[in-house]
Design a protein around this nucleic acid. Structure first.
Length: 502
RNA sequence: UCCCCGAUAGCUCAAUUGGUAGAGCGAGCGGCUGUUAACCGCUAGGUCGUAGGUUCGAGUCCUACUCGGGGAGCCA
């Protein structure tokens, strides 16, 4: 039987016509004489209807009880159908089974993270994961376009790097023909050299950190885009970063509004991501942490979360009474299922509540000269409705290459961008020290091996100019824009401390 | 490296002060022509993470370990 082959995303062009779809059984429901198969073909989902009649005799019985993720080809007439997910429906007239799947482990019911992470190779077939990875692809596309359209030259920096990074305890050591070498944690130093050749450059690729962090915002392998601009000052760098983040946000809103809503992202919060972002100095950030506003925020959190736990306690008790009571079986089951959801929320809240006093202490006891911690960043960003730049950090908490502020030598001209809604840092950048003597002095001060940096110092010998750049973490950006709780969902195969399978 | 929490059926979770291990989903069988995490009936499915200890009796209490989750530090 020869029919038109097409994909689900193009079904709108074929209403009333007979077409063939190929894909996987995402879910199915069947009664005696009718079956509904939700077909997933990689471009979308479509409900396919099979009726038990003479022409279906050869395949109906088999198709109606196919396990999840079995691969099939279905031929039928396309119709518009408001009741079906996706808006279209296929009334099947012919069906071919390609492979009957074995028991598929990921059911339409909830699963735990540990389980899903071990099934990552299957997990990203699920709707939610499918949406996230598509948004990631769009973000990466926008990143490339942004720089290509503005005359930046792509410079690929090495992944194998000699020790010359920012401190070797956070680097992965690799055996390089018998000598130690490290996986790059940034392309920046190489990029600085390239920007003296091409003026505006960027690199984009994976980067590696051996930090022993087990948190929802850390990966050991992640993607970072780093622009580097000659003849720039701090203000210009911040403006570029601002325009860049706005352009990514606008693009995602334009291309993925439906997916964002599906993911539960608050669209208004994203629409508020417009220039100008807030700009405060590190010293102002420190004052903010000591302020009543910060204390009130956490006090309020504590009250609200404690109240919610009490509310949940009562609700759980109530639901359990229903579950054990004399109602209909399905009512009891529903109550039991709801109780599980409430318990989950309660566990999470309790954990947050135990952390609040700690975070309050850290904020209130914050001392000028130390770096902002994760909880501090969360507080600062939650006190603002748009992303916020924090600038002029004390030089001792930042890398040796950052340009010392000529008016206040205690600080460097560096900046971080904290995403809104408490998602924390997504960009770190700075003006680089262009003065030969100052740079060498800083290298010595940090007790770094000067001989490893000879080539880097060369850049200050031959036509040194003010320059700088920044790095944006792709996964943290995806996490923020999609409103995800955990970074592990933002990359196809996450690599975290203690996790690298599959 | 440190702090907190957890580990019970293939999956998600229950088990009232220590007293005979349960439910839903999934799987198998049967029923149902418009389902939306479909529904209804039946069946199978367990060395309660590992090793010790307390006790007449331990899923439940104690100790150590393993693995996982969250957080601190560090960072994008």
């Amino acid at each position: 039987m020869e029919t038109t082959r097409t994909t689900i995303e193009r079904l709108g062009d074929y209403v009333g016509q007979t077409v063939t779809l190929s894909g996987w059984v995402y879910n199915s429901r069947a009664s005696g004489k009718i079956a509904f198969i939700i077909l997933r073909d990689g471009t979308g989902n479509c409900q396919c209807i099979l009726e038990k009649n003479e022409q279906a005799e050869s395949y109906f019985a088999e198709m109606k009880k196919l396990p999840q993720e079995s691969s099939v080809e279905l031929t039928g007439v396309v119709s518009k159908e408001a009741r079906a997910t996706g808006g279209f429906e296929l009334k099947v007239e012919h069906a071919t089974l390609l492979q009957k799947a074995q028991d598929y482990p990921i059911t339409p019911k909830p699963h735990g993270v540990d389980f899903l992470m071990k099934k990552r190779h299957l997990w990203f077939r699920s709707q939610r994961q499918w949406h996230i990875l598509r948004i990631r692809a769009t973000i990466i596309d926008e990143i490339r376009r942004f720089y290509n359209d503005r005359g930046y030259v792509l410079i690929d920096t090495p992944l194998f790097a000699p020790a010359a990074g920012e401190g070797s305890q956070t680097l992965f050591k690799v055996d390089y023909f018998g000598d130690p070498i490290y996986l790059a944690q940034t392309g920046q130093l190489y990029l600085e050299a390239a920007c003296m050749a091409h003026r505006k450059v960027y690199c984009f690729g994976p980067t590696f950190r051996a930090e022993k962090s087990k948190t929802r915002r850390h990966l050991t392998e992640f993607w970072m885009v780093e622009p580097e601009i000659a003849f720039s000052d701090l203000d210009e760098l911040i403006s570029v970063a601002e325009e860049f983040v706005c352009s990514i946000t606008q693009r995602v809103l334009k291309d993925h509004r439906a997916e964002l809503i599906e993911l539960g992202r608050n669209i208004e919060e994203l629409e508020a991501v417009k220039a100008p972002f807030h700009r405060i100095t590190y010293s102002e950030a420190a004052d903010l942490l000591h302020s009543d506003k910060a204390k009130a925020l956490l006090d309020n959190d504590l009250v609200e979360k404690t109240a919610r736990v009490t509310e949940l306690d009562a609700k759980i008790e109530e639901l359990e009474a229903v579950a054990k009571g004399g109602g209909k079986q399905w009512q009891k089951d529903k109550a039991a299922a709801e109780a599980i959801g409430c318990r989950e929320e309660r566990t999470e809240l309790r954990e947050q509540i135990t952390n609040i006093p700690r975070h309050m202490e850290l904020a209130a006891g914050f001392e000028w000269g130390s770096d902002l911690g994760g909880s501090d960043e969360t507080i600062i960003s939650r006190l603002h409705d748009r992303p916020i730049f924090v600038t002029h950090y004390p030089k001792q908490v930042k890398a040796f290459y950052m340009r010392v502020d000529r008016d206040d030598p205690r600080v460097v001209q560096g900046f971080d961008l904290l995403a809104s809604q408490g998602f924390g840092e997504i960009i770190g950048g700075s003006s680089r020290e262009e003065d030969y003597d100052r740079l060498v002095a800083r290298i010595k001060e940090e007790k770094l091996p000067l001989e490893d940096y000879e080539w880097y110092v060369d850049l200050r010998r031959y036509g040194s100019v003010p320059h700088g750049g920044f790095g944006l973490g792709v996964e943290r950006t995806v996490s923020w824009l999609c409103g995800l709780k955990h970074i592990r969902e933002t990359i196809p195969y996450p690599r975290m401390m203690g996790q690298c399978y599959p």
